[in-house]
């Protein structure tokens, strides 16, 4: 088990990520990723293969940078009006990884309010984190949606 200070620092890092997403500070959010960091939302429960199996999102920093630009500057149609979200993170379990970093698992709920409708997303995040000074950087974030293989409506704000 991790010492409580490290555990707490990891939790605070995840809370910071959630706060940046809620505040619409997507560029700051992207800075939490390593230059080669990957953001992954699989389309199938238990999916391990991002090449032969379609993903809702499987993007590295370079493609995420385009996605963030779209969210920020070029106001996409699906983002008018801009959705407001609450990203809630809990049940955080972290352990040391072999490479000096950490693997983290956390449950999440995201409530998204846009115009006259409200939607709820939920599932489990798994992270591979690298140490970065006093803080961390994301090498991989995998978002396992409860309804990954279900019927979807268009989604825009990252989970």
């Amino acid at each position: 088990m991790l010492d409580w200070q490290t555990q707490r620092r990891i939790e605070l890092f995840l809370f910071e990520e959630a706060r940046l997403l809620d505040a619409g500070q997507f560029q700051e959010w992207l800075k939490l990723y390593e230059p080669q960091g990957i953001y992954w939302i699989p389309s199938q429960p238990g999916q391990t293969d991002p090449l032969n199996v379609a993903s809702i999102v499987y993007e590295d920093h370079a493609i995420l940078a385009i996605r963030v630009q779209r969210l920020l500057e070029a106001r996409a149609l699906v983002l008018t009006p801009m959705p407001h979200t609450t990203h809630l993170i809990g049940n955080v379990e972290a352990e040391e990884a072999g490479d000096g970093g950490f693997t983290v698992s956390a449950a999440f709920v995201c409530v998204e309010h846009q115009g006259d409708r409200q939607r709820i997303y939920s599932g489990r995040h798994s992270y591979k984190l690298a140490r970065h000074g006093d803080s961390f950087r994301i090498k991989m974030k995998r978002v396992a949606l409860l309804n990954s293989d279900g019927v979807h409506t268009a989604m825009a704000v990252p989970l």
């Binding site: 809702i56 999102v57 989604m155």
Partner: peptide, 13 residues
């Protein structure tokens, strides 16, 4: 994924 995912930067619009 790029064109048909629910988070597609194209089809969602």
């Amino acid at each position: 994924s790029t064109l048909g995912s629910p988070m597609s930067m194209i089809f969602s619009d």
